[in-house]
Amino acid sequence: MDWTDQGIVLSARRHGESSVILSLLTEHHGRHAGVVRGGQSRRRRGVLQPGNLVAASWRARLEEHLGQYTVELEFGYAARVFDRADRLAALSSLCATLDECLAEREQHESLFTMTLRIIAALEQGPFAARYAEWELALLSELGFGLDLTSCAATGVVDDLVYVSPRSGQAVSKAAGEPYHDKLFRLPSFLREGGNATGRDILDGLRLTEYFLNRHVFQPQGRRLPDARERLHGLLRKAVENNRLDLDG
């Protein structure tokens, strides 16, 4: 068994004295692990940083074996965000979230494309709103997409400003007003795209955090990675200090 594919490094765990078990989000083979011999060497360690794009060849005697990877760096995204705390936190959060929530060897081609796009966006320009959109897309990819097209109570398609924590469906302003303290605020950029304020971004992250926890992490007895909490904290601080690089 062998194949060659592109992959985004999600994690590299030490294995023995010199090898690592590499977890990649590949374009055509989903999240796939394999051993990299000599992966702890000085030369390889830089390549195997989370977020880097690599060309990977996987080989095993049988398909169900862990197998071995040989990897070559295609683009070193990680080093480009080392200087920026919020972007580095976003990169760590994204890789840790994918590593923990994706089933192994399940194809997610569109998720690979979306993830590569957000990682590229981390290098420069606004990224926080794109990150919230990516989490929304991740929920959808995992089969827990939110229905933001019509109101859960009345069926109307306009003026949708809340999301029901119970159904994950949008709620209109009129129908949701009496229960506004029990509903999530739906920022318009998640429904229609366009500009996002700092508050919109934090609302978006709160929304996706709740549903990721409820549908993906809590059923497995886990919680969102620490890196995700750190990202949320950094963005909250940036919004409070008016330092967030906003979209538009």
């Binding site: 705390a85 580095l88 890196a227």
Partner: peptide
């Protein structure tokens, strides 16, 4: 260290 974890630690300490 100049790794994702090392730099995350550096930013955290700075904060």
């Amino acid at each position: 260290n100049l790794t994702v974890d090392g730099q995350t630690t550096a930013h955290y300490i700075t904060e």
